[in-house]
Amino acid sequence: MVRVNRRQLTGALLAGAAQLNAQTPAAQQAVPQDADQMLAEARRQVAANRSSLHRFPLPMSTEPASAFKAS
């Protein structure tokens, strides 16, 4: 059984909320027009997602949410 305390969850949530806020309508954001700029922005987003997930406490015993079945 995995155990994560409330403080750890809250910290991770705030990181996630900041991330999701970055996905609100673009009318409120500067939208890059150039393809290279767009790719750089997309890569920044992937990196931001990565750091959000790495800030999230993850017990070593947690297995991924996909199951291999012998058949």
């Binding site: 995995v2 767009m38 890569r43 992937v46 997930l53 949410a65």
Partner: peptide, 22 residues
Amino acid sequence: AGLKSYLDISARDYLRAMRVRT
């Protein structure tokens, strides 16, 4: 751009996300 950026996602990133999903 989004699809191209997905090539940056490593097995480690994906598995971490799938573990948080658990």
